[in-house]
């Protein structure tokens, strides 16, 4: 792939900076790659691409609808446009262009939505993106990726270039806690990564909730002796249904965790798989409730919504107390 950074880089660079660095490296050998932004070169850290490739960089000003339309036209002519703007604009401001110009035409546009979830904490609801996964995963042709940290983001960017068709990559503002210290050699769109093995309970997480889920699993092992499986579900669509069904069979308790509304996002997607499987399990979705987000530091909001380490541990412990009818023989129900 030509990616040369290490975990040292990811401690020094925010997730968006890793994205920009990775894209600059990948663009060296691929002249089809161009970048568009909407006066967000600085905010989304993609300005370094402009320095490296000024002729392949288009700042369209504060006009996201136009940006996605232009990207569509470029992709139609063989380029691979990467768009960089806030996640909320992909899902709301310019959704018609994302839906019709890019996804309906199944074009090779890679959309980076930054400042996702509540990661732009103090900016408040107008700058949070807490419905984007639900909205965008319902659009045909579109792959939806929610990487956990910088290294995972780099893997997503590389995979997105290889993938034919539109891709949405949802990243946070600022630094993420590091989940991956080495480049993810076996990353593939549509495959969950098992970060922690366990048979008592499975936590399926994406984005910034992955680190919390992994820490929670480790603590629960140490303190309670609970064996918790953690799946990093970077790809929300196409969803790794096999990994979910396996967790369902083997652990029979599932918690989902995401910095997003519990309606229709990762939790909703997993719920659909569980309901469709014909197999029962104890299930809980962690995320934002059906209410607009609050203003506050990202970590405080994560804590408030119980998608931090303590919150996930609390819910895991409660889940272990849930009394549900276990049926030893599921094979006759499928």
């Amino acid at each position: 792939m030509g990616l040369t950074y290490t975990s040292l880089d990811t401690t020094k660079l925010s997730t968006a900076e890793v994205y920009a660095k990775a894209l600059c490296e990948l663009a060296k050998d691929d002249e089809r790659i161009v970048v568009l932004t909407s006066d967000l070169a600085k905010s989304t850290k993609i300005g370094v691409f402009e320095e490296a490739y000024p002729d392949r960089f288009y700042n369209v000003g504060i006009a996201e609808q136009n940006m996605f339309g232009i990207a569509s036209g470029m992709a139609k002519c063989g380029l691979i446009p990467f768009t960089s703007c806030f996640a909320i604009f992909n899902a709301c401001r310019a959704l018609d262009q994302v839906h019709t110009d890019i996804c309906y035409q199944n074009l090779n546009v890679k959309m980076i939505g930054s400042h996702a979830g509540t990661s732009f904490g103090q900016a408040g609801t107008t700058h949070h993106a807490t419905e984007d996964i639900a909205i965008l995963r319902s659009i045909a042709n579109l792959s939806v990726l929610v990487p956990a940290d910088g290294m995972a983001t780099a893997a997503c960017v590389a995979a997105a270039i290889e993938h034919q068709g539109p891709v949405y990559i949802r990243i946070n503002r600022g630094f993420d806690q590091i989940v991956y210290r080495e480049p993810i050699s076996d990353f593939a769109i549509g495959k969950a990564i098992t970060l922690h093995e366990g048979s008592d309970l499975t936590i399926i997480a994406c984005g910034s909730a992955v680190f919390s889920a992994l820490q929670a699993a480790r603590e629960l092992d140490h303190v309670d002796g609970l064996k918790v499986r953690v799946l990093d579900m970077t790809t929300i669509k196409p969803l790794d249904e096999a990994a979910i069904k396996q967790a369902l069979k083997e652990t029979r308790r599932i918690i989902t965790a995401e910095d997003h509304t519990i309606i229709g996002g990762l939790g909703g997607a997993v719920a659909e798989v569980i309901a469709g499987s014909g197999m029962g399990c104890a299930f809980r979705r962690l995320g934002l409730p059906d209410a607009f987000s609050q203003i506050g530091y990202h970590e405080d909001l994560m804590s408030h919504h119980e998608i931090d380490v303590a919150g996930i541990m609390k819910n895991a412990r409660e889940m272990m107390q849930v009394d549900f009818e276990e049926d030893d023989d599921w094979t006759d129900e499928v």
Binding site: N66, G69, I70, A71, G73, K76, D96, Q97, T100, Q105
Partner: peptide
């Protein structure tokens, strides 16, 4: 280009024109 939702075509056309210059 697949069109129908109004107000989209000119941006798509611009993207095609820019891609032409780029290439």
């Amino acid at each position: 280009a697949s069109t129908g939702s109004l107000g989209h075509g000119l941006s798509i056309a611009l993207g095609m024109a820019l891609a032409g210059s780029q290439q």
